[in-house]
């Protein structure tokens, strides 16, 4: 049971640490309660078995003296709960409330059962000829804030980057804005995390976190591929 985090993927964004520490914090608190309660249960079952405790005590729990401990305990629970909530809200606000000033804008188009990533042209337009479409491969420059505009052409999908710790549903009929950043060059995973039909299980893509130079090179290569030379 102490291996809960054994397979937790390494975080690669500026906020992945915040999310992880929130999860660790909740794990610590709930872990304490788990041990306390299960311990108490085992103690009670052994201590108050019929052979150890032939006569039960008549307690109705209708007197303040009896229930004040319940109330006190619940007060502690509520305080801890709010503590968790405050910590959680911070992460939430940072990541989901609004998109900060970003360096790169990318439009993510989800459809059964593919991801397409559209890079805007120099004027920032996604629908011009000069916009670049990358199929199932998302390249982002390391250390830069990336703004993703999520759209779906059919059903609900979900844009999940496990290593980045970003998850956002992609709804048809609307554009959802999200952002993330990265701090480590490498190849990572993109998963669809909402059942979207019989091909759902194959709806994967790859996240390439490149250094600036590789990123620019890749874009030039992609341009050549799409437009056949400069």
């Amino acid at each position: 049971m102490f291996e809960l985090f054994k397979y937790l993927p390494e975080g690669i964004s500026s906020f992945s640490g915040d999310i992880d520490s929130l999860i660790h914090f909740i794990y610590l608190l709930t872990g304490i309660f788990f041990v306390l309660f299960e311990g108490f249960l085992i103690y009670v079952v052994f201590r108050f078995r019929k052979k150890n405790s032939p006569k039960a005590k008549y307690e109705l729990g209708d007197k303040w003296a009896q229930i004040q401990w319940v109330v006190a305990f619940v007060a502690v629970v509520v305080c801890l709960d709010f503590f968790i909530d405050v910590k959680s809200t911070k992460v939430w606000e940072l990541l989901k409330e609004q998109v900060p000033a970003t360096d790169v804008n990318i439009k993510v188009v989800a459809k059964q059962f593919d991801w397409t990533f559209v890079y805007p042209d120099k004027e920032g337009k996604f629908d011009s000829d000069q916009a670049l479409s990358s199929y199932r491969e998302l390249h982002v420059p390391v250390g830069k804030k990336v703004h993703v505009i999520l759209t779906s052409q059919d059903v609900i999908h979900d844009f999940f980057l496990p290593e980045v710790r970003l998850k956002q549903d992609v709804m048809p009929g609307r554009e959802i804005n999200a952002w993330f950043d990265t701090n480590k060059v490498g190849t990572y995973h993109i998963v669809c995390n909402e059942l979207c039909g019989f091909g759902h299980t194959r709806m994967l893509a790859v996240l390439h976190v490149d250094d600036e130079k590789t990123y620019e090179n890749w874009k030039v290569q992609l341009y050549k591929q799409l437009h056949g030379g400069v």
Partner: peptide, 20 residues
């Protein structure tokens, strides 16, 4: 166990990773 692990998911920040 079910009750306690619900706290992970009720905390919106942790839910970002654990949802689904």
């Amino acid at each position: 166990v079910g009750g306690l692990t619900g706290i992970f998911l009720g905390a919106a920040g942790a839910d970002i990773y654990l949802h689904g």
